[in-house]
Amino acid sequence: MRQYIRHPGFQKGSKPFLALDNPLPMELPENLVGERWAFVQLPFSAVVKEISSLERKQTFIGTLDLDLLGLDIEAGTLVPGVAVASSRAKPLAAWMNSLEVCSMEVDTNRGCLILSVGAATRYTYATYKKTAVATQEAEAWEAAKKACEGLHFLAIQDNLDSDECFGFWLLLDLPPPPV
């Protein structure tokens, strides 16, 4: 660090050249909008089984190497997720698959779900009416994510009661990299 301070181009108080911030979420592109959504949970064993099943089908899927990440989650642990229903589930899943889907989070102040894609892109994915019950459900969903070391999922279906997924992404909250 001291060598940098002695560099002739050093300017005390200047902002770093590369900074990763948490930008305000943008409006979700129309092609990514679902018709309904719900907070859901599946036991970890069911998530692993679902991924295995979907990998054999022609389904849009995004998985993570949990062993490589060092996650040790018990089979019965409930993994939180968001299920999205759309009458155009297959095209919606295809569009979603074209993104580098990273994670989802709840913003209880704004009453919305935020989808993070890539290194610094965030979308307001869905909104909800801010009520005590809705806020409690959103906070419980975030608490469940923390209990799973940040693991969660996004499932796209033709309706919320369906057992068939057209898209399934395993997501993980990660801290920003040090810059």
Results as ranks from 00 to 15, higher is better:
47 V>L: 09
41 Q>N: 10
28 L>N: 03
99 L>V: 03
29 P>W: 09
79 V>A: 04
67 D>K: 15
20 L>H: 12
52 S>Y: 08
108 T>H: 10
75 A>I: 01
20 L>V: 12
111 G>Y: 06
104 M>T: 11
83 A>L: 13
68 L>D: 12
56 R>P: 00
34 G>Q: 02
107 D>H: 06
94 A>H: 13
83 A>P: 02
64 L>P: 00
95 W>M: 11
45 S>P: 00
116 S>E: 13
112 C>L: 12
100 E>T: 10
107 D>T: 05
62 G>S: 12
63 T>Q: 08
101 V>D: 03
101 V>L: 14
77 T>L: 07
49 K>T: 10
46 A>R: 11
22 N>A: 09
79 V>N: 02
17 F>S: 14
110 R>V: 03
21 D>K: 11
17 F>V: 15
112 C>S: 13
77 T>F: 03
75 A>H: 10
113 L>Q: 01
91 P>E: 08
23 P>S: 11
98 S>N: 13
99 L>A: 05
50 E>T: 14
62 G>C: 03
19 A>H: 10
80 P>R: 07
77 T>M: 09
52 S>L: 10
57 K>A: 10
22 N>M: 09
96 M>C: 02
86 S>G: 05
72 D>Y: 08
112 C>W: 03
81 G>C: 10
109 N>E: 15
36 R>L: 07
78 L>R: 12
115 L>A: 09
43 P>I: 03
88 R>E: 15
68 L>G: 07
37 W>L: 03
65 D>K: 02
117 V>E: 07
